[in-house]
Design a protein around this nucleic acid. Structure first.
Length: 221
DNA sequence: GCGACAG
DNA sequence: ATCTTGTCGC
């Protein structure tokens, strides 16, 4: 897929913060109304100071793989909480350009609006691609919440002060929950429905789970 | 000032 | 994220 040239990536955290403040107003939380045929999972692995991004596209109906794209680049930005997108998006975009299929929606390994400035990795990527995205993080970044019930499918709200910024969703019974948040062009209830529909019995939804394997070089198919 | 802190 | 095998529990 084609990717629009956005802004610079070799910036300081101060400049990155300014870019986030500017992107913030472009993030949409409007309900996604469209048919989901293909869902993509996105993940990045880092090894020997090199980043490898993987995008795995699945048919939403049966979660079968229809396309896989990868890209590798030297790491150019350190991991700084709050600025993960500046470290991971460049290599993700490189992989996107090699994608043949055109996914209707993306599940991202990281936060969406559950971020200090409401522009986590999933939201930032969504705005750049102008596509619906959902943040599927494995741990909490910001916000407070009650512990969801132990059963698969149960969830609690994630708040920042009095603002609802996401949900803590149990994908599998008695297994640590995921932190789901709106990325872009979708609302939280719809995001939760889609993530649950992408569950194949593991802690991670299938798109992200396979992307993790593809980025780590252990995807079997 | 202190602790927390996506991947 | 990454370093890493077996092991405990549902």
């Amino acid at each position: 897929m084609k990717v629009r040239v956005p802004h610079r990536w070799d910036v300081s955290t101060t400049e990155a913060k300014a870019i986030q403040e500017q992107l913030r107003s472009q993030v949409s939380q409007k309900k996604f109304r469209g048919k989901v045929r293909h869902v993509a999972g996105v993940d990045v692995s880092v090894k020997n100071n090199r980043s490898i991004a993987a995008v795995v596209v699945l048919r939403f109906a049966d979660l079968e793989i229809v396309d896989v794209a990868r890209a590798e680049l030297p790491v150019k930005f350190p991991y700084v909480p709050g600025y993960l997108s500046f470290r991971e998006i460049p290599v993700i975009l490189a992989a996107m350009e090699r994608l043949v299929a055109s996914p209707d929606l993306f599940l991202i390994d990281g936060q969406g609006i559950a971020h200090p400035r409401r522009v986590g990795l999933a939201s930032h990527l969504g705005v750049l691609l102008d596509k619906p995205t959902i943040g599927c993080a494995k741990s909490r970044f910001i916000g407070t919440h009650e512990e969801p019930d132990a059963k698969a499918g149960c969830y609690t709200d994630l708040f920042d002060r009095d603002e609802l910024i996401g949900a803590v969703l149990r994908m599998r019974t008695n297994v640590k929950p995921l932190y789901i948040s709106v990325g872009h062009k979708i609302d939280l209830p719809t995001a939760l429905d889609i993530v649950l529909d992408c569950c194949a019995g593991y802690r991670l939804p299938e798109p992200t789970r396979l992307a993790h394997q593809a980025a780590g070089g252990t995807l079997r198919m």
